[in-house]
Simulated scan of single mutants.
Amino acid sequence: MKSSWKFILGLTIALTAVLSIMMTAFSVPAVNSGVHQVPIGLITPDDPTYQKVSEPLKAKGFKVEQYKSENTVKKQVDERKIYGAIALSDTGDVTVYQATAASSAVAQALNQIGTGIVEQQKVVGTKQLAATAQQATDPVMLKTINARMTALQAKQVKIVELKSFPKADPKGTGLAAGALPIALGGWIGSVAIVKAVKGKWQKFAAILCFAMIGGLGLIAVIQFGIGTFDGNYWLTSLGAMLGIAATGFFVLGLLEVIGNWGLAIAAITLILLGNPLSGLTSAPEMLPSGWGAFGQLLPPGATGTLLRNLALFDGHAALMPIAVLSSYVLVGMLLFKLGNKSEI
């Protein structure tokens, strides 16, 4: 039987909608990426200095919190509450506390801010010393001014790394590059299972096996093959298993309820939206406002965040991604139980 013109028109409209969603999901975050309430810390010798430094940072989009000590900053970074901090001493020295493992992009941004503060200090200090030198007649004073000028020009930002990736992958490229494999690989594996395996409960069992074996394999590649992780392999693998299970049961449940259209919906959710909005290449807060938070509610973003927190931050802030992924598993199982298209 030939396809009707009505069907062809409907299909082309649906494909155009998918194309539009893909273009929006990939282009809008890329064009509008930047700082959108990225939480950082600021240590200053007094409140006036905090106000002077924090206001420009807030204007740039940072969410700035004031802290009193380096230890407090370290704790906040460990618990994934901030991405790093900038400290100014009472003598004007600038220290950047970065956590590359949390986000290489934010660490780079903090470095640029710290460098900018030092460069501004050099400009202001040079003008003041030059004005003083013009009025000075004492050779000893001129010598002192020149020494201060030399020291000022040699001034640099001090960088303190609080949380880094392993030496084998210092920039975390393996995790950033894993956004697409996490989204696409989970979808392809799930589609292969639901199409190749016969029998409703056999598909259920196959998804479970895929989640367990796939989780072990995924982390083995990232940890032992690439070297991006160096944490507890088994614990991190459990996180990967949950992520794959969320994807697998989500696909399986949709297929059981609405048939092949479920595969298209899953592809849009997991790949077209989930991949670019995962935040793995930068940070969720570096995506346009609202997009990053939405991406963390999709399996790829939640899986990436969970793996990062388990492998590099001792499991801190893992509850939210676990809850998100568990919800996909439960909803998928519920749809699977209610559906009856297992033979499609």
Rank of each mutant, 00 (worst) to 15 (best):
L306K: 02
I226S: 07
S190L: 03
K203F: 04
Q296K: 00
I244A: 10
T95Y: 03
K337Y: 11
A105T: 12
E65P: 00
M241R: 01
V257I: 15
P284T: 11
K122L: 12
L57I: 02
V329K: 10
L335M: 15
A266P: 14
A318E: 03
G125Q: 03
A131N: 15
G227V: 10
Y328M: 14
G189S: 00
E285Y: 03
A105C: 00
N111E: 10
T173Q: 06
G34Q: 07
A136D: 04
G301C: 02
V251L: 06
W201Q: 13
D138C: 02
D230M: 05
G125I: 07
W291A: 14
I258Y: 00
G214C: 07
Q121R: 04
L272V: 06
K198I: 10
T91M: 10
E79N: 04
W261D: 12
P139W: 15
F336M: 09
A101E: 01
L330R: 14
Y50L: 13
H316L: 06
V197C: 08
I117T: 10
A59C: 02
W187K: 06
L325D: 01
L218T: 13
L273G: 09
Q121A: 09
Q156S: 13
A179V: 06
V160A: 11
L325F: 07
G189V: 01
Q153R: 08
A14L: 12
L129N: 01
Q37A: 14
A283D: 04
F210A: 15
L218I: 09
P276N: 08
L270K: 03
H316Y: 04
L312I: 07
I40M: 08
K337L: 14
L216T: 07
Y67R: 15
K6S: 03
A264I: 15
Y83T: 00
S326V: 12
S89T: 13
T269M: 15
G253W: 00
S237R: 05
F210S: 13
S69Q: 06
A283I: 00
S89Y: 06
P288T: 00
Y50E: 14
W187C: 12
S27D: 01
I82A: 09
V329R: 02
L42Q: 02
I207T: 11
K58I: 13
L216H: 04
A267G: 14
A240W: 09
Q153C: 00
V329L: 09
G217N: 11
G253A: 12
M23E: 06
K81V: 13
D169M: 01
I268W: 01
K75A: 11
L280A: 13
V28N: 03
V77T: 07
A14P: 09
Q156G: 08
I82E: 08
P288E: 00
T72A: 15
I244K: 04
A266L: 12
I226M: 03
A136G: 01
